[in-house]
Design a protein around this nucleic acid. Sequence first.
DNA 1: CCCTGCATTCAAAACATTTTGAACGCAGGG
DNA 2: CCCTGCGTTCAAAATGTTTTGAATGCAGGG
Lengths: 178, 178
Amino acid sequence: MHETLVAVNDSTLSGLGRLARFFGFSEVMGRLYGTLLMSPEPLSLDELGDTLDISKGSVSMNMRDLERWGMAKEVWVRGERRKFYKAESDMWQVIRNVLGSREQREVQMALHVLGENIEKLQAAECELSPEEQQLARYYLDRIADLQAFFQFAQLALHAVVGSDKALDFDAITRIEIE
Amino acid sequence: MHETLVAVNDSTLSGLGRLARFFGFSEVMGRLYGTLLMSPEPLSLDELGDTLDISKGSVSMNMRDLERWGMAKEVWVRGERRKFYKAESDMWQVIRNVLGSREQREVQMALHVLGENIEKLQAAECELSPEEQQLARYYLDRIADLQAFFQFAQLALHAVVGSDKALDFDAITRIEIE
DNA sequence: CCCTGCATTCAAAACATTTTGAACGCAGGG
DNA sequence: CCCTGCGTTCAAAATGTTTTGAATGCAGGG
């Protein structure tokens, strides 16, 4: 194959590996996704392993994760007994999958814990010595800051997850105005 | 100290450790930041090390990073020879620091590489066989998708970094309309 | 000019994550 | 009912990251 095509392909895989890392996935997952994305035809597990030069086991496990996250889909190739995969090529769908299930849960948990802590501090107030009360008020201020941050994150996530790409910005402003 | 205060403090440190991890920092950095955030008084390096039960060396290195990222500031305590730190308590400032320097560079690099790859493909077109040309066009489509994603990310970053919290949403829409 | 109290550095150790490949399981063909 | 080809699993090995603490540096006091 022409060296330019090879070079572009490599560069894209590196970039997607990096991106995967950034989102807390393994680099290999990003590369597998990239390999599928850059292939007009679905690929089998061995083809993926051969291309990236990683073991069967690794391919198998990582592909399962990719499927779980909605980044790749199994595809039936007639006359073949092997599994074939193709990338979910709608990036916005992928992003919505990830943000929607993982990030949103994280943010919600954080807000929940912050709320609990505020309640605990308020409930305990009467048991506290004067200095402790002062510290409790200080804590409440800091926690309020954190709450504001996570609430912002929640709005932003909602805006991206709960809409098409074209509607993202609208969704954000609508939420803000209310 | 009252157990509620201790519990709330612990919980907050865990949460900030998690958050730090998410943003690609070490968990200890998050905990150090949290310890400073939850202390009305500046703390010395030994106090930080004692509280979190980590070694002097680790405190020293991680605090340097925290300072580099604008998450903590050195503070002079009169009559003390030791270094004292306090947290940068404006969360939005912290976020702008991180997004502004690190993330923005990442996104810019990605866009730059994508652009280069498009150029390479176009320059090489006439050297390619018919099938290779078809693959090249396929690559160009995929790369265009990635470009759209990173361009969106760039807009979003700009909106958050280049403004006060209150102006974020405005900034996003303004850019979008142009 | 030495001593003390800190802060910093960095190589080695502890720890965590990822990768591998051999063993296993399973479906379909003969 | 065995054989083959493929996918999955998982313990062990490789690799990567973080933590430690001993050595070092540095400033100020005596």
